[in-house]
Design a protein around this nucleic acid. Structure first.
Lengths: 226, 226
DNA sequence: GGAAAGTTCACCCCTAGGGGTGAAGCCTCA
DNA sequence: TGAGGCTTCACCCCTAGGGGTGAACTTTCC
């Protein structure tokens, strides 16, 4: 069984690096051949993974273009948007598969393999798993601890270190420590990078939201406060 | 003719402030009564403007909750997502109107008024105007000059000031000047704020993309380079 | 019982970023 | 022709943020 060769299509280096980081532990099954920020794939690959965020109509055009590329066997869209009509439209435009960003890394890899060998095309996880599970937290699969995810969530909301310290009742030195280790984990070198990464990974509260808003262990801290 | 009273529902202070800034020049027609970051409206208003980004299914739940609020006469969704099915779903969930973020400020105000007096519910602009028009640029309506919009676009891509200077062939001092005046215009006090604002206003290249990718005056500089 | 990993914090450092001012050259429009 | 706005840049300032190290205490797990 040979590894599935994929090309990552995404404008943002940070984001692309994040996905690569997630796939690092599955190198024998998924091989990231190319990281193209410019929407052109040179080397031939099994899958071009189109990593998108919102799932707008602009994506459909891009998918069409990618699918027309002879170096690409299949285009797979990787998005937070689980709208059935949007998915149908994208598949109609030449995408071979659709994978939800709500999937954990292991299922993500399995989904890529399934699509590659002609199995199921759509992988959205359980009934409605795009949302953050109670007791779990975004970024967990990328190796972020709960605290790290929390400060990243606050960074992604535009707070300063001082504000984060105040809100979490921690010292500003601790905040800095978390931010540093967080940056190391997601491959960011600046706050801006971290914000972009956070947005691409479902860290914005209330956009990808918990179904039941009861305070849950771990989850509650990530919710926006008054 | 009295002003339409609206409440702004958005998690992000930066974003909310941006919309308020845009409406400042129309104070006699639109009155922003409340800025609620917590999805509760206390004072009674004509319109609760639900300012969203991606247009995910989570929004529908939120819209439903808002529409049930007795203090709110009408819920209007303000989004980049122009997917007809999504719009239909949102209207089915109790929204009284839907306005595209692609509209210029003047049309935006007119749309709010139309919905408020029971006129057209859906305002998406011309045939497909969510995209950036050639010769125009995002942020124009908010008072950003072309240069300011350009540096903001680069900031929103995660570049440092030095990288921006290099890419634009300007001195780093000029970049700083543009950033400062840009911050003043959009009401940001930090780079993170500016990034969030930029994302919410269509500054991310290739997400909201120009239909025809030929280099166009003004538009070309905002496109991503290799 | 000790390794491993997470949490918390204190010190150090140093630069990138944010902010103010002034100034020259370029438009446009009244 | 002169006011006003945009562009470009150079100085100044100073803090927030990024980065390294070390250290105490917790839990978890073999």
């Amino acid at each position: 069984m040979t590894a599935v060769r994929i090309a990552l299509v995404n404008d943002y280096e940070v984001v692309a690096r994040g996905v690569v980081g997630m796939l690092r532990s599955y190198q024998n099954r998924i091989q990231v051949v190319e990281l193209d920020l410019n929407r052109q794939v040179d080397e031939s690959v099994d899958i071009a993974l189109y990593d998108t965020f919102a799932g707008t109509q602009g994506d459909r055009v891009a998918v069409k273009a990618l699918a027309a590329n002879p170096a690409v066997s299949a285009v797979v869209v990787y998005s937070w948007n689980l709208d059935p009509t949007h998915i149908a439209a994208v598949l109609g435009n030449g995408a071979a598969g659709y994978i939800s960003k709500g999937l954990p890394a292991s299922m993500f890899v399995a989904a890529l393999e399934a699509i590659s060998r002609g199995g199921d095309r759509i992988h959205l996880g359980g009934k409605s798993t795009p949302t953050v599970m109670a007791g779990d937290w975004p970024g967990r699969e990328e190796g972020l601890t709960e605290r790290e995810a929390e400060v990243l969530a606050l960074i992604t909301q535009g707070l300063s270190n001082a504000e984060i310290a105040e809100r979490t009742h921690l010292s500003i030195n601790s905040i800095k420590t978390y931010i540093r280790s967080c940056y190391r984990n997601i491959g960011a070198t600046s706050r801006t990078n971290a914000v972009l990464w956070g947005i691409e990974h479902g860290f914005r509260p209330d956009r990808v939201r918990v179904d039941h808003p009861e305070p849950a262990p771990g989850g509650s801290e990530l919710a926006p406060q008054a």
